[in-house]
Design a protein around this nucleic acid. Structure first.
Lengths: 165, 165
DNA sequence: GTCAGTAAGTTGCAATTTGAAACCCACTCC
DNA sequence: GGAGTGGGTTTCAAATTGCAACTTACTGAC
């Protein structure tokens, strides 16, 4: 059996809070199943209330609630798509589009580990059709990094803490 | 005002379902706030029931529930860390470790857009201290890709659909 | 003018989940 | 025996989700 000791960096948790607030903030805004699925629909061009509702099979009250939250959070913008009568669709903002990495990572993981017998998807470069590569690199060392080789640090260079994601 | 038409790929949704099942499967397993935060704690070496509970401030019943689910899903494994009495900690499996990309992406996004006045973190290579680069590349073309340049395709090469994440 | 249809919600209520906190069990060690 | 630790389980109120009926604001056809 393995005997491992708990991490002993707990004295330095004051600035780990700075890191935590990033992911906490993200999860506060998008850390629920429906929000993620709505965002995924947006990336796929499904932007109207009825279309999203049909696509996801979500209750209308929940959809209205989530859309309002995502608009409040400036992740989606409510944009008119016609005049008579005026009708709106929900369009990703830049902030919302930046969530693509999260969705891609989720999809990758899901396809690898949750494919339930259906064919996994492959993400490809649209121009050449070859599978894409996801990487995390150190440009200074010109090497790819594994998750264990990443630390995070406050942006102000106030100190160093060793953490994993 | 912009007038955009809904995507017209809806006839091909039969194999978009294959893609959806990946992200649905992922969200079924980890698409809730507490599961994500527990996984984050695991990556940081916080693995014992009490330590996780204290770290996250989560209700014990929810923690027990989530841990059981994550163990059932083979994302965490329950590993003894001592004999007398026998005590267990929750350790990431390979499947669980593969979720690091999701957590890194969430952290990046949160740090960029949700920093609420606290100092954003920078993710760095632990050996040299330089900021890491996250990229999505096409190895065949040797170019970086933006989210709009990615398609997904069923793994069996049954057909092509243009989708975003 | 009336009516049907569409889009985008709102409302009411039951079911489910979350959250707080008390409680419990199984040890170990003094 | 008793205190302390670790890891839960149970109870119950509050919050959220989910279902489905209902509403509002049009437009266009007759």
């Amino acid at each position: 059996m393995t005997s491992t000791e708990p991490s002993s960096d707990e004295a330095a948790n004051a600035s780990i809070d700075a890191q935590t607030s990033g992911i906490q903030g993200a999860l506060d805004l998008v850390g629920d199943r429906w929000s993620m699925l709505i965002l995924r629909a947006s990336f796929r061009g499904v932007r109207r209330f009825s279309a999203i509702q049909t696509d996801l099979g979500i209750a209308k009250n929940l959809l209205a609630d989530r859309l309002a939250r995502l608009v409040d959070a400036d992740i989606l913008a409510r944009v008119p798509y016609q005049d008579r009568p005026v009708r709106h669709e929900y369009v990703l903002t830049e902030k919302g589009r930046d969530l693509s990495a999260v969705l891609i990572a989720l999809m990758h993981w899901g396809d690898r580990w949750c494919h339930h017998g259906s064919a996994p998807t492959v993400l490809v470069h649209d121009e050449c059709g070859e599978p894409i590569e996801h990487s995390v690199r150190c440009p200074a060392c010109a090497t790819d990094l594994s998750p264990g080789q990443i630390q995070s640090r406050p942006g102000r260079r106030a100190g160093r803490e060793r953490t994993k994601p």
